[in-house]
Design a protein around this nucleic acid. Structure first.
Lengths: 226, 226
DNA sequence: ACCTGAACACCGTTCAAGT
DNA sequence: ACCTGAACACCGTTCAAGT
C-alpha cells in the first residue's frame, strides 16, 4: 500500500483546462501580470507551450478564467443570504470581500474592468443589485444605484492594483504613503491648493477604511430621498 | 517668397519629446493601445526606433505623457473658475469633460488607473476637491468625498474603454446593447434574478446620462447630512 | 485525442557606429 | 549632441510531426 502513495509527484497528471487555469493563477500571484507567459506556464506544467492551446484559446481566456475564479470565490464566500444582515451591511461585506481579494491578487484589479461586461463584473452586479432591491429603491432607480456601486468598486480595484505595483519591494505601505504625502506637500501652492491641504491626512490613511467610507457615501446617496 | 513656403513637408523637423508624444497620441487614436509600437512610431516620424529613446525613457513615459496631455486638456477646458456655476454643476461639468475625453481616446481610460497616483489623476482630484470645499463639506470629510468621486470617475472610464474595445466595428452601440440585453435575459433565473429584471433597461441605456446619474448619487450622499 | 517543440512574426530596448 | 539600424532577448501563437 505504501508504494501506492508515492511522493506527490503529479507531473504526469493529464493536462486540463482546470489545471492550466489554476497554474496560471499561481503564476500570476507569484510574479504578477507581466510574468504570465506561455513558456513559463508550460514549464510549470512540464510540457510545451503548444500543448496549452489544445485546452485554451489564448492568453485572454486564461486571464478571464483566473479573474472569474477569484471573483466568484470572493463573492460567494460573502453573499450567504442566510444571515439577517441589513442590505447596507451586506453591500459593505461584499465590497470588502472584493477589495480584499484584489489586495491579495492585484492582477485581478487590473483585468477586472477589461473583461467584456460579462462574468466577473456581472456576478458583483447581481449581488449588489439584490441588496439594492432589498433597500426598497424604486424600480426605475435600481439600475443606476447598482451600476454606481459597481463602478466605484471596480475603480478602486484598479487603482489599488496600480498602487500595489508602484510600491517598491523595499518600502512598506507607510513609507509609500509618507512619500506621496511629502510629494503632495511640495506641489505648486497655486495649482494644487486642495491636494496640499489634505496631504497630511495621507500619513494616517487606511485604504480599506477609506474604500468603505466611499461605499457608505454612495449608500447615503441612494437612500437620501428617504 | 513663394519658394520659402514649401508644401508642409516637415519630415526633417528635428525630433523632440513634444513631437514624439503627439505622434504617439495620434497613433493611439488611430490604432488603439495595442498599436503603439516603437517601430510604427519610428516610421511615422521617419526615423529609427532607437532615436526615440534619446528623448524618452520608454513606452511607459510615452503612455503617461499622452494620457496626461488628454486629461490636462479636458480638465482645463472645463474648470474655468470664472462662471457662477454651483459646485454641483462644476463637478458635473468636470466629470463629463473627462468622460467625453475618454470616449474619444479610449486608451486613456485603460491607462488612467495605472499611472502612479501622480499627474493625471491628481489633476482631476484637485479640481474635484476644490468644488468639494465649495460645497462646505467639513474638513475631515473632504478627502473621502473627493476620493470617492475620483474613484467613480476613473472606474467608469476604465469600463467605458473596455466596452469601446468590445464593440465590433460592424455593429453600432445600439446593436451592442441589444446583444447584452438579450444575453442577460437568457441568464439562469435562479442565479441572476436582478440582472434579468433590469436587462430591458439596457436597450434604452445612455452611458453618458447613466454616468451623470451616478455622480449625482454620490453628490447626494456627500450633502446628505445637510 | 492529445502532446511536442521548432518556427513565425512580432515585440521593447540597447548599443556600436555614424554624422 | 543626436540619429541610425542591426542585434538581443524576449513575446503569443501556429503547426507539422509524433504518440
Amino acid at each position: 500500500m505504501a508504494e501506492r502513495t508515492r511522493r506527490p509527484d503529479r507531473r504526469q497528471e493529464p493536462l486540463s483546462r482546470e489545471r492550466i487555469v489554476s497554474a496560471a493563477a499561481e503564476l500570476l500571484d507569484a510574479v504578477g501580470a507581466g510574468g504570465l507567459t506561455f513558456r513559463a506556464l508550460a514549464e510549470r506544467l512540464e510540457t510545451g507551450p503548444g500543448a496549452i492551446y489544445w485546452h485554451v484559446t489564448g492568453k485572454t481566456e486564461l486571464l478571464d478564467a483566473a479573474t472569474d475564479a477569484v471573483i466568484t470565490a470572493a463573492v460567494s464566500s460573502v453573499s450567504g443570504d442566510d444571515t439577517d444582515a441589513t442590505p447596507q451591511e451586506a453591500i459593505r461585506a461584499l465590497a470588502l470581500g472584493v477589495f480584499d481579494a484584489i489586495d491579495t491578487h492585484p492582477w485581478v484589479g487590473t483585468h477586472l474592468a477589461r473583461a467584456p461586461g460579462q462574468s466577473p463584473m456581472l456576478r458583483i452586479f447581481e449581488v449588489v443589485g439584490r441588496q439594492v432591491q432589498a433597500l426598497h429603491v424604486p424600480e426605475a432607480a435600481q439600475f443606476t444605484a447598482a451600476s454606481t456601486l459597481l463602478s466605484y468598486i471596480v475603480g478602486v480595484a484598479g487603482q489599488n492594483a496600480a498602487n500595489t505595483r508602484a510600491v517598491q519591494p523595499g518600502a512598506g505601505r507607510t513609507e509609500f504613503l509618507d512619500g506621496v504625502a511629502t510629494a503632495w506637500a511640495e506641489l505648486d501652492p497655486e495649482e494644487y491648493v486642495f491636494a496640499r491641504t489634505v496631504a497630511g491626512q495621507l500619513r494616517t490613511h487606511d485604504d480599506r477604511a477609506e474604500f468603505l467610507a466611499g461605499i457608505d457615501l454612495i449608500l447615503a446617496g441612494i437612500t437620501a430621498g428617504r
